[in-house]
Design a protein around this nucleic acid. Structure first.
Lengths: 139, 139
DNA sequence: AATAAAATTGTAACAATTACAAATATAAAA
DNA sequence: TTTTATATTTGTAATTGTTACAATTTTATT
């Protein structure tokens, strides 16, 4: 399925900008922030506005086609991977890594049993990644 | 142990402002943002500056005496409860609720086994709380 | 081809946070 | 106690991420 159809499957009307943004999101698993997307796509779409990037992500999230990560206090990051997974952000290099989780149903069921309606699960770890630890040891 | 000694136990030199802020944090489990603290303490400390509240939280976090929650995209929230627990934020009323978790050691051990050094665990849920669901049903 | 609706754009406004220098308070030394 | 040095607090200004909004452009409809 191409990006055009992928957007349609979320009831999102495709446009040049929306396709480009979703395409970037699906091809780059870097959990990009607004600026990363904006700067990357400016080359291809010189008229692109940062407001459009904001608007588009708002739309994607409303339609369930992307998720917003608040793991980085400075910037909102976006994730096109809709599967259940956790994230790890390195405090040194800032890189965000995907972490597989076995969805702990028990905890969610517990919440639901208490009358909470769960719409989002965010699971973050912070610390230092192996690469940065390694570099540090060599100094 | 009083707040004065509590701060000292984190190697934080107590001051009128620092004691007041930590005292508020320990007595109010509302996960307050900067403004909530600032407005609440202004009554007692009329000269209080918002910059001091920012500085103080930065200090608390550096010394491990508080944690910052990024669960709310709008504002950073603070938590003085250092025990392992998750959070739930209601998308309607915005209230943040503490959720007990049985620390899933397996997942952390797994990460550590891969060479990650874990310093923080954040575990957020979002949805609608029982109170707001109830209100909605009555409309 | 004309019209209406939707999407994009750029600017300005806004709000949270930080930088910074001046003022105040605290601690140490004389 | 007085002086001096250090740490803390304060207020303002600057910065940054985000949103509001009106004008423009694009797309769809008649």
């Amino acid at each position: 399925m191409n990006v055009y159809e992928y957007l349609l499957s979320f009831q999102i009307k495709p446009s040049v900008q929306r396709i480009a943004i979703m395409d970037y999101l699906l091809k780059h698993k870097t959990h990009p922030c607004i600026d990363e997307i904006y700067l990357a796509l400016c080359k291809d779409i010189p008229t692109l506005s940062k407001t459009t990037v904001y608007n588009t992500f708002k739309l994607f999230i409303e339609h369930g086609a992307a998720r917003m990560l608040t793991i980085d206090e400075r910037n909102a990051c976006f994730d096109g991977d809709l599967s259940a997974h956790a994230h790890f952000q390195c405090k040194v290099c800032g890189k965000i890594t995907d972490i597989p989780i076995k969805q702990e149903e028990t905890e969610m069921e517990n919440l639901q049993g208490k009358g909470f309606s769960i719409e989002e699960v965010h699971h973050y770890y912070k610390g230092i990644c192996p690469e940065c630890l390694e570099k540090n040891n060599n100094n």
